[in-house]
């Protein structure tokens, strides 16, 4: 009696399925091409990370942290964290996770920064993209796994794909904001001296937007890291998968180890990119 009336049923699921299969049959080649390029990039990065001797990686991270944060103890601390990861036996898995993060971030920046620039230059484009970005950021992250799965199947490629979609909004948003908040008086001065629109973009707008873009890069990287853990549900090998396995087998100790490794990676990446962004800001205002 109080059941929802049958005639109001909307077969959305069927429509989506139909749409998906249409995409797969008609645009399959395009997604294949995208998939192979993502895979090629990912595997190259992964191979490099795994090839570099662990001691070199640890030293390099220590030195970079020391230079970026201008604090010697930060270098020592971060190096020690990496040593711990290795001592848990997760070195290779950590490098694989890092490779997925790197690949996703690189592709996110390659797409996100130009998109942000376009968005800053066109109010129409901004008004279309803004609600889309809002929606992308409010959606639960594992929702992205579904289309990724459908388009690319199981494995690393859909993981990277889902990570990109999840992580790309901040860099687009902050590139847009960075360029839009360049003072009008400065742009006018550049115009008055006969700069072309292209010169204004490269000589004035982008350089002045860099602090903001750097913050965007930091946020995108952190979101990529968060997503990588979730993406392991669709078969991306790495630290996230260890956590997942440990949960399934109820191995609290193992899960804790893998979890701590992820936290270490998060701290290291966040602090270093954050310091770089802050440094840019400092040199600009000074």
């Amino acid at each position: 009696m109080f059941e929802f009336p049958q005639f109001l049923t909307i077969p959305l699921a069927e429509w989506v399925d139909a749409g998906m299969s249409w995409i797969l049959t008609n645009l399959g080649t395009i997604f294949d091409a995208i998939g192979t390029s993502i895979l090629a990039l990912l595997l190259t990065i992964e191979r490099i990370f795994l090839w570099i001797p662990w001691i070199v990686t640890i030293l390099a991270v220590g030195i970079i942290a020391w230079r970026a944060l201008r604090q010697w103890w930060a270098g020592v601390l971060f190096a020690a964290m990496l040593v711990l990861i290795g001592s848990f036996g997760y070195w290779d898995l950590a490098m694989m996770t890092l490779a997925i993060i790197f690949a996703s971030v690189i592709i996110s920046l390659l797409i996100g920064i130009p998109t942000g620039i376009l968005m800053a230059r066109s109010n129409i484009f901004q008004s279309i993209l803004k609600p889309l970005l809002d929606a992308m950021q409010t959606m639960p992250s594992f929702v992205y796994l579904i289309p990724a799965l459908m388009l690319f199947g199981l494995g690393k490629v859909p993981a990277v794909f889902a990570t990109i979609i999840y992580a790309i909004p901040p860099v687009i948003r902050l590139t847009n904001i960075g360029i839009r908040q360049v003072p009008k008086s400065v742009i006018e001065a550049a115009q008055a001296f006969g700069s072309t629109p292209k010169q204004i973009l490269y000589e004035v707008q982008i350089p002045l937007a860099i602090p903001s873009i750097m913050v965007g890069i930091n946020q995108t990287t952190m979101m990529a890291l968060a997503m990588v853990v979730i993406a392991s549900m669709i078969g991306a090998k790495g630290l996230g998968m260890q956590v997942l396995l440990a949960i399934n087998r109820i191995e609290i100790g193992k899960g804790f180890e893998a979890g701590i490794c992820i936290v270490f990676l998060a701290i290291i990446i966040d602090r270093i990119t954050h310091a770089m962004a802050a440094r840019k800001e400092y040199s600009m205002s000074n």
Binding site: V186, A189, F193, M284
Partner: peptide, 14 residues
């Protein structure tokens, strides 16, 4: 031919 000087200077901060 022309050059302009602005009240708010309009210098390039970077």
């Amino acid at each position: 031919t022309t050059a302009m000087v602005f009240q708010q200077f309009g210098l390039f901060p970077h």
